[in-house]
Nucleic acid binder design. Structure first.
Lengths: 229, 229
DNA sequence: TTACTTAGTGTAAAAAATACACGTTATATT
DNA sequence: AATATAACGTGTATTTTTTACACTAAGTAA
C-alpha cells in the first residue's frame, strides 16, 4: 500500500492487439491467464504501465516481454476507460496494435509468469475473452481496416519476400471481401513500393509465383499521399 | 491522502480541443489558468477524471462545465502518456475533440474556478500553451484534417442555416488550402446531405446567398461510405 | 502425356476528379 | 436613377481513376 494525492488512484494498462499472418489466416496473439481475475481465460497480452515509463515505452516493453520482438512498429489506437472494466480497481487501458510476420527464423517466445501460454489464434474463430478485450479487439480490427485502405500496412505481416497473391490475401482477410486479381495488382504496383525480384517461390506444388520485396525508401516518400483500396 | 494498491497511483485527465468557427476564422477554446502549475498560462480546457465516471462521461461533464453545452458529439482521439508531462505526478491525459457552433443564441459560459477566463482563440495565432497542450492540439488538428476529408464534419461548426460558401470556408481553413468553388459545390451537393432552403442570407452587403440546412437523416445513411476532398 | 492448379496478363466502359471564366444579382454610393 | 461593387451561381471538356471481365502460360504431380 502507498499513499497518494486525491485523484491519483488509477492504474493504467497497455493491451496489445498483435496481428499475424501465417499465409492463410489472419491471427492474433492471445494469452491464457494464470492469475485472478479471469484466471484460465484467454486475454489480449497486456500489463500495467510502470511509473517510470511512458505509455509508448510500456507498450514496447510489454511486446518484447511477450514475444521477444523489438523493432516493431506499434501504434496506439484508443484508450478504454469504462468504470467497471476491471474488477480490482479503476484501470484505464491504452490499446496498441502491431503487425508481425509469423513463422520467421526465431520463434516468438512469450515469457510471462502471469500467462500459462501464449498462442496465435485465428481472428475468425476466437474464444471468449477476459475483461472487455473483445471490445478492444473489435476496435482494433476496425482501425486496421480503415488504415490498410490508406496505407500499405500489409507488408508488415508478410515475410521479407512475398508474392502478389499473398499481399492480396492479406488485404482480403483484413477487409473481409474478395478483390479482383487484375485490378488489385494494377493498383498495388502503381504505388511503386514493390520491387520485383529475380526469384521465384520454392517448394510449392504447381507454378511458382514471382517474389517481391517491399521498398521502404520509396514507401517513405509516398507517406502522406492518399491511397485507397 | 489515500492508500492504494501498487500500480494504482496514476491520475487520468481529459483535455478537450473545442473547435469553433465564427464565419471567418477557425478557433479553439482556451482557458487562462488560475492555479499552479502553469498559473496564468493558457491551456486547453481539461480536468481530472472522477472515480465514478467513465472517460467518455468525464469528457461530457467537463465540456458542460466549461461551456454550458451538452448534446455535443465529442470524440476521443489519443491518450498522452509521457512520464513528465505533468509536474505534480503521473497523469495520463485522454484527449477529445468537438466541433461547436459559435455565436448562437446562448453564449458559452465557462464556469470554472480553476480558470480565470475562457476565450476563443484563432488557431492560426495561438499563445504558448501549458503542459504538452500544444502537442495535444497539433495531434487534434491532424485528426480533424483526416476526418473532414472522409466525413462531412464541417456542419457541426456551422449555424443551423448556412451558405455553401461558408461550408467551403470551413473546409479551406481546416485543410489549409484553397478549393475550387464549382468543384467543391458539385461534390458537397453530390452527397445529398444538404437541403436547399427557400431562403436567403440577410443583413449582408451585396448579393445574398441561398441558405442550406444539414439533413442529419440522410447523413446517417451515408455513414460508412468513403468520401474525400 | 495428361491432368491439375495457380500465375500472369489487357481492354473497354463508367465514374470521378480536375481545370477553368463569366453573366447575375443584391447592395451601396453618387 | 444610374453606376460601381462584390459575392453569387453556374457548365463543359479533359484527364484520371475505378470497375468489370476471361483466357493462356507455366510448373507440378500422377
Amino acid at each position: 500500500m502507498k499513499e497518494v494525492l486525491p485523484g491519483f488512484n488509477f492504474a493504467v494498462s497497455i493491451d496489445c492487439v498483435l496481428f499475424g499472418f501465417d499465409g492463410n489466416e489472419l491471427k492474433i496473439l492471445l494469452i491464457e491467464r494464470n492469475e485472478e481475475p479471469f484466471k484460465d481465460w484467454w486475454a489480449l497480452p497486456g500489463n500495467l504501465v510502470n511509473e517510470e515509463e511512458s505509455t509508448d515505452e510500456s507498450a514496447f516493453r510489454i511486446l518484447r516481454e511477450l514475444t521477444g520482438l523489438s523493432d516493431i512498429y506499434m501504434e496506439q489506437y484508443y484508450a478504454f476507460g469504462d468504470v467497471n472494466r476491471h474488477p480490482q480497481g479503476r484501470v484505464i487501458s491504452v490499446a496498441y496494435y502491431a503487425m508481425l510476420r509469423l513463422g520467421g527464423e526465431k520463434p516468438l517466445k512469450p515469457l510471462t509468469s502471469y500467462a500459462k501460454k501464449a498462442q496465435w489464434v485465428n481472428v475468425a474463430n476466437l474464444p471468449k475473452l477476459a475483461f472487455d478485450h473483445q471490445h478492444i479487439l473489435d476496435k482494433g480490427l476496425e482501425k486496421i481496416k480503415r488504415r490498410i485502405k490508406h496505407l500499405p500496412l500489409a507488408f508488415e505481416l508478410l515475410p521479407e519476400k512475398f508474392t502478389l497473391t499473398q499481399v492480396q490475401s492479406v488485404y482480403e482477410l483484413i477487409l473481409g471481401k474478395k478483390l479482383d486479381k487484375r485490378n488489385f495488382r494494377k493498383k498495388i504496383l502503381s504505388f511503386k513500393v514493390l520491387k520485383e525480384l529475380d526469384e521465384k517461390q520454392r517448394g510449392v506444388s504447381f507454378r511458382a509465383a514471382t517474389l517481391y520485396k517491399f521498398d521502404k525508401r520509396k514507401y517513405n516518400k509516398l507517406f502522406g499521399k492518399e491511397i485507397s483500396f
